[in-house]
């Protein structure tokens, strides 16, 4: 009897709730450290980003208008599905060089992060909203509100946890996101997209691209329909580019250094607030 041939996974992009190949037809050859496994990763292009942005913009309103309870449930659902896919992530993380222990910890943390932010989705507005005692006969209140579309460059040195730590607070706060996965460790990103795909996340709310930072960062930061640009990393040139391009349409700039995302301090409702606007409403009190 001949040995069964494995079915290998094709690593595609995740745009508008679908899994297209890059429109450019280009690919990046990714090899594990033992040179035993070779994967063709999509080399996402400017146009892929543009398409993802169109979808993210379309989704941003409907996602923001979901009830907080519904968003919370969907985030929890992502955690559930992640848990169910544990083996697949184990394999990918191991392939990307993590030890068994590290692998288990990264998956645990990633799941827990969604559970954490699922809990915040219907509370952060409560905690950070205020009724303001103005000195006039007016009812005045302030509520944080999603900024809209976030373009994000995910942390490079983790495959799953870094990306999860970025996506979860952004979408818990009702934003849609286009995120560029880790260039060095891209494998988990598309598997994670499959998790999103089966978690009732509406199409376009999360879009995941793979590709080269150096090629895409310019477009991520200069796109005029991006409300916030989120950059993870320590490259001074990149940071300056992001901040400079942000000026084009006054984007919010959010930056995280490369850091150990496993630490509890890297989950916080203040991360949700980074991609929120502040809306204040006035109304007279009278008869």
């Amino acid at each position: 009897m001949s040995k069964r041939i494995d079915i290998q996974k094709t690593y595609k992009l995740f745009i508008d709730g679908k899994f297209p190949r890059t429109e450019s037809g280009r690919y990046i050859k990714w090899t594990d450290s033992n040179n035993t496994t070779v994967v063709n990763i999509c080399r996402g292009s400017r146009k892929d980003f543009r398409n993802a942005m169109v979808s993210a913009r379309k989704a941003s309103r409907s996602w923001a208008c979901r009830t907080a309870y519904n968003r919370a449930q969907i985030l929890y659902r992502i955690g559930e599905i992640l848990e169910g896919r544990r083996d697949q992530f184990m394999a990918e993380l191991t392939l990307q060089g993590l030890t068994k222990k590290q692998t288990a910890s990264e998956i645990d943390q990633s799941i827990d992060r969604f559970i954490y932010y699922a809990g915040w989705a219907d509370k952060y507005q409560q905690v950070f909203s205020h009724v303001n005692p103005v000195s006039m006969p007016y009812f005045n209140f302030t509520v944080p509100e999603a900024t809209g579309v976030v373009a994000a460059i995910a942390p490079n040195d983790t495959s799953l946890l870094g990306m999860v730590s970025i996506i979860a607070p952004v979408i818990a706060g009702g934003n849609s996101i286009v995120i560029l996965a880790s260039e060095s460790f891209p494998l988990c990103s598309i598997t994670f997209a499959e998790v999103l795909h089966t978690s009732d996340v509406p199409a376009g709310a999360v879009n995941i691209l793979t590709g080269y930072r150096s090629e895409l960062i310019e477009h991520f930061s200069s796109h005029m329909d991006v409300n916030a640009i989120l950059y993870c990393g320590d490259n001074g040139v990149d940071k300056k580019l992001v901040e400079t391009n942000a000026a084009l349409n006054v984007k919010h700039v959010i930056q995280f250094p490369e850091q150990n995302w496993a630490k509890d301090e890297h989950q916080s409702p203040y991360h949700i607030l980074k991609c929120q606007e502040t809306k204040t409403t006035w109304h007279p009190i009278g008869v």
Binding site: N132, N140, T281
Partner: peptide
């Protein structure tokens, strides 16, 4: 999509009331 909305009034300001813009109106 704006930071301050006046309903049945306009141009009211108070120190207790935040003021700031979305999009190209500020950070």
């Amino acid at each position: 999509r704006a930071g301050v909305i006046w309903a049945n009034t306009f141009n009211k300001f108070d120190p207790a009331s935040p003021f700031g813009g979305y999009k190209e109106s500020g950070i």
